[in-house]
Design a protein around this nucleic acid. Sequence first.
DNA 1: GATGGTATATTGCTAGAGTGAAAAACCAGA
DNA 2: TCTGGTTTTTCACTCTAGCAATATACCATC
Lengths: 292, 292
Amino acid sequence: MEQTPTPLTRQVAARIVGYIRETAAEPGTRLVERTLAAHLRVSRSPVRAALRLLADEGVVAVAEPGGGHTVARPVTELTVETGDEDEEQYLRIASDRLDGELPDRVSESELARRYALTPAQVTAVLRRISGEGWIERLPGYGWEFQPMLTSQESYEDSYRFRLALEPAALLEPGFAVDHAAIEFVRAQQLELAEGAAHTVSNTELFARNRAFHEAVVACSHNTFFIDSLRRVDNLRRLIEYRRTLPRDRAAVRCREHVDIADLLLAGRTADAAEYLRRHLSTVSVEKTASSG
Amino acid sequence: MEQTPTPLTRQVAARIVGYIRETAAEPGTRLVERTLAAHLRVSRSPVRAALRLLADEGVVAVAEPGGGHTVARPVTELTVETGDEDEEQYLRIASDRLDGELPDRVSESELARRYALTPAQVTAVLRRISGEGWIERLPGYGWEFQPMLTSQESYEDSYRFRLALEPAALLEPGFAVDHAAIEFVRAQQLELAEGAAHTVSNTELFARNRAFHEAVVACSHNTFFIDSLRRVDNLRRLIEYRRTLPRDRAAVRCREHVDIADLLLAGRTADAAEYLRRHLSTVSVEKTASSG
DNA sequence: GATGGTATATTGCTAGAGTGAAAAACCAGA
DNA sequence: TCTGGTTTTTCACTCTAGCAATATACCATC
């Protein structure tokens, strides 16, 4: 009876699951369509489609009196199936580019042929890549790849950039610790430090560390710091995926993250900034050495 | 006999004029098509069209033996006619947005109707704006404007961001003064400090100051610093256009720019960094006060 | 006034043919 | 080999119509 869901429907469904996890909603909690739509920045149409999809999968239950949907399962049982095909296309291109399979200049139709994409998909993926800054439209026809974090040199550059940025963010006048957010990432880091760092996937490890640093900088409430860090991290992600991280060291770094979070939660912001500075210096040296 | 030149042809023509000025090419100097094409990142086709256009205008002469084109006039006589219609569309949208004429969410067809743009033009301008970070595509249909530098608060944020960034750029290990570039912007600043600051247009004043700071940071040879500064400046530009700058103060700031350039040229990088830090603090206070 | 349900209006993608412009290859002369 | 000139190929934009998906407005119920 299922229609093939659209990409947006799938994406919204995945984000609804994420929403349930974040809010730690108990089974039986009502999922209000308008609230979800506003939160996910779409209209109710795709939200309703996603809820029907989740109902088919049993993640969500149909509320009997008055209609609507409720949470069906406890948070712990939820699986996170993204199934994001846009993401796959993006990663395939990134991977090919890093492997040197793609020339410095490409045309849109060339990409469409090579990856069997529709024009709209090409537009979407180019929009994303150019937003991340590693491709640029040429004045005439075609696009030109920009230097990425491929070289060791630019990789070190990115760390020194963060070294200038992140500690300064903590010293912003508008800095105010978001206790809920910091406690959330602290819990994640504690779990890693206590062993999970050895079992978790590369992707997951990177995602959590990234989330930690961005949560900290977000407390500055200065968009420029936050955006800049996000941009660097978008690029770092692509290259970190292909690295084998020494997990024992990663565990140590996660322990440091916990310490930083504790300093912040205790209101010792200046100490946290100094600790963060030392932390980044250490990481920088480690990374540089491990790949030299 | 003139065909109506395409936007690209016009753009290339303007950039060829810029190229002649930069290289300070004497009349009679040969303009090699392949060199220009490589430099401007286009093929020879639009370069040839642009050269024909410039020949019609008398800026460029047809070389008699063997064909080709040469510089026809001394650099001082060159007028800079951009006639960039893409730029106009972009500025119109930015202006309307700053005036509150545009809602937070817009559809592409809405923009096309309102500004009488073709779909391709809408794509182009949205690409640019989203690259600058003040609009974002929604998951479904439509785009959402992001907070700009409209508020006083975010304006101060941008200055504190630069305060963290620019002095740090000078202390980068890869920092090496580009003497030609620094001397060029130093000359511009000196001219401003010695009176031109009172006569020049808002646009020109901003462009030169921007060029100065970016030239300095470019010496760091760290893309992340350079890109970040450019991004902030793109946003600042939109708001600075609408300000009436107190020219006497601007002249003082330009004098400081000259001093910074001198320190750099003398190899006193650390001193320059400290001077730059103080300079930015001062400017920040001035701006904040003048618009409070 | 919330909320879920439903109907309507808009949007942006698709597809295909045609087209002017730009990229790329080729040529000839010094 | 370098240059300007020429030709060929490829590209992306422009139309058009059609359409599924999305956004929006409206309705009924509590």
